[in-house]
Structure formats: C-alpha cells, structure tokens
Design a protein around this nucleic acid. Structure first.
Lengths: 201, 201
DNA sequence: CCTTGGGCATGACAGGTGTCATACTATGCT
DNA sequence: AGCATAGTATGACACCTGTCATGCCCAAGG
C-alpha cells in the first residue's frame, strides 16, 4: 500500500486528486491539507510514503516544505505538482532533491504513473521542463544588485534602501539601473519579475 | 442523461473533472477542450445541456464564450468555474446571465450538486460570493478617467495618450492622478489593477 | 611594475510621475 | 437670477527614475 499525503490549497483540485488516486487499489490517501505547515505536521505524524506538494500555498511554500523534510532527514518521497514552469522554482526543487516536479498542465494519468515511478526510486520531471534542467544560465547580478533588487521587491523605497545600506539614493538607483540593463528590461519592476523567475534573487 | 462539455486550460484539472463527473451515472462528458474557441465550436456542434467554463483560457475567455452563447440564443446552461473571486468577473458573468459561478476553492462535491441544481433551472453562486452580488459599488471614475486608465493599461505612454486625445500631457497626468486618489492607491499601475478587479474599466 | 577589468560609489542630467491651484463650462437647485 | 457641484482642461511644482561620465579600489595577467 502506497500511503500518500496531498498538500494543495485549491480545494476542488485537492479533492479531485484525492478521489482519483483513491481509485487506484494500491494507493491510500491518508491526509489532505491546504497549507505548508499542516503538510509538515502530517508528514511528521503519519510518515507517508509520498507527499504531493503544491508550491504556492498559504504559510510555507511547497519548496520550503521539501527543504525542511530533507533537512530533517525524513524518509518521504516528495513530489512537487505546480502550475509554474519557472526555472527558479525547478532549480530550488532540484536543490532540495525532490523526487518529482510535475506541471498541472500534464494529463492526470501522468501523475498516477509518476507516483509509481517515484516509488521505484526513479525521478520524474515534466517532459516540457527536461531541457531547462541543463540550461541553467548563471546569475549575472552582483551581490549589491541582488541586495537592492530584493529590497525593492519587498516594498522598500529608494530612499529607505539608501539609508539602510548607508549609500546615497543615486548609488541605489545606479545598481537598479545596472540590473535593469543586465536583465534587458525597462523598469525595476520588470527586473524583479525576471530575476524572480530565474531564481536570481 | 445530462450531457456536459468541459472547457478548462489546466490539463490535470480538466481530466480530473471529467473522470469524476463521468462516475455519476446520469452525467455524460461529451467533450473536453482547453480554449474558448474550441468551446464555442463544441457547443454549436454537440448541443450539450451544460458547459463548464474556466475564465482565463487561451483565445476567448469563459466570460466571452458565455456572452456569445447568450447572444446567439443557444439553449445551453453555462457554469463558470474559476479561481477568481473578482467582483468585476462576477458582474460580467451575471450580465451574461450565466447559470452558475463557482470558485475552484469549493469542495468538489459542490460542483456535482451545483450541476444538478442548474439542471433544475436554479442558479448557483459560491456562498463566499453571495454577498458581493448585492454590494456592487458604483464606478467612481469619470468617462475621461476610465478612458485614460484603459489606454495606459494597454501600454500607451502619457505622451502617446495625450496626442491621441488632443490633450496636453499635463491633463492626462491629471486624470490619472484623480483616478489614483479615487481608488485610494499610490501609482497608476495599482489603479489599473484595482479598477480591473472591480470591473470599472 | 603597469595595465586591464570588474565591482563599488557618486552626482549631474533628462525625462517621467503625482499633486496642486486655477479656470471654464454645464447642470441642477433655491 | 444666484449659487453650488461636478466634469473638463491647463501649467507650475516637487519628487522619482533611469542613464551616464567619472573616480576609486582591488585582483589577475603581461
């Protein structure tokens, strides 16, 4: 019997997964949760064979849950199931040594098959993403550029950041300008988006 | 037999819906599609009793499909199934006289039950949204403010808009400033977001 | 040793953005 | 008619944003 925990915040999809997987004779859904913290509790309490994790959930993200499970050395297969094909997410998932990274755009049969493969000790990645596993571009941003970009993305104003880093506002703008050019975009906001997407901040 | 077409771009969810609804003895899934245009073709060709529509899909949105079905006077129940609780979307759906507006955050059983209710001629709206059906705030934006906001949202620069409307750039900025204040936000971009959300542009 | 290149830091500059005071018009109320 | 209100339109102002030229420092290589 393969014992499974499902963590997914969209209720309808979570329920659908549970019902469908339950139909497989050797699958047992032992718990369904809607957030990262509950997922961790359940994994600790129930020791499932497999945990399906969405990435964007309230509380902890699926990637954070995966990392924590690995850090604590728990013996549970981790499968990320997400909408997002972002290289940055995939990279983080790989760093956390997840057993599968599937897109919700795959057919549902793919999920069932992937679960069986993972139980055989194999790793599964959505075919669509297989390429980007190899083509990880290096981060072109310097330490300072990343720092400033991060702070802007957290809502800091130019002035606020300058004070916090003991710089003039002109210098902060300069880092942003530099980052904007390296990322080949027009505004700081687009720069943040792109850097996030690639996992560079 | 209730004949159903499903239009939903996320493959896994679409497949899950199909499999689960198929389990009901009196439901028949006659077609699954992933975009608005295909949905319209299928509705025309197969004359289903019910069509489940996602809103954000490639090609036509679910709301546009709903409106078209009504305009052409086709006799098909329309059920919107979406992630988004935006008042603007709900409003447009109501204007198109859809038979149901459900959030993907509802339990899956809710969908099955809703389908039966709709077949009995009832209308179904997610409980969470029931309130906002009555509390539709009036649009505080003037004609000009809406126009300028729309043009900015389509990527027009201040200068471009000014030329197009035969105004000075100062005047255009003034409308934006006014809209920004009415919407109680900080930037034109947030103003666009909020106005979109409420269906005011 | 000197040169080169890259990161760090600054301030000047041009242009964009939001606010404000102001003015004109039309509408509706007294 | 007199008045208040709301929409339209303008330009002045202060501030923000992105770019650029410049200089400093340090490490790698000739």
């Amino acid at each position: 019997m393969i014992r499974i925990v499902i963590a997914e915040d969209q209720h309808m999809l979570r329920g659908a997964f549970a019902s469908l997987l339950q139909l497989e004779e050797d699958f047992e859904i032992i718990s369904q949760v809607s957030g990262g913290h509950e997922a961790l509790s359940m994994i600790e309490a129930c020791k499932p064979d497999i945990c399906l994790l969405d990435i964007e959930m309230p509380g902890l993200t699926g990637l954070e849950v995966a990392q924590t499970v690995r850090d604590r050395g728990w013996n549970c297969k981790i499968m990320i199931v997400t909408t997002f094909a972002r290289p940055g997410y995939l990279q983080k998932a790989m760093n956390a040594a997840v057993d599968a990274y599937l897109l919700k755009d795959e057919p549902i049969e793919f999920l069932v098959e992937a679960i069986r493969r993972v139980m055989q000790g194999k790793r599964v990645v959505s075919p669509y993403l297989a390429d980007s596993l190899f083509t990880h571009e290096a981060n072109p941003l310097t330490e300072r550029e990343q720092e400033v970009l991060r702070m802007v993305s957290e809502g800091g104003t130019t002035r606020h950041i300058a004070e916090h880093l003991y710089l003039t506002t002109g210098t902060v703008r300069n880092y942003l300008s530099s980052a904007i050019q390296k990322l080949e975009v027009e505004t700081r906001h687009h720069a943040i988006e792109k850097a996030r997407d690639r996992g560079w901040i």
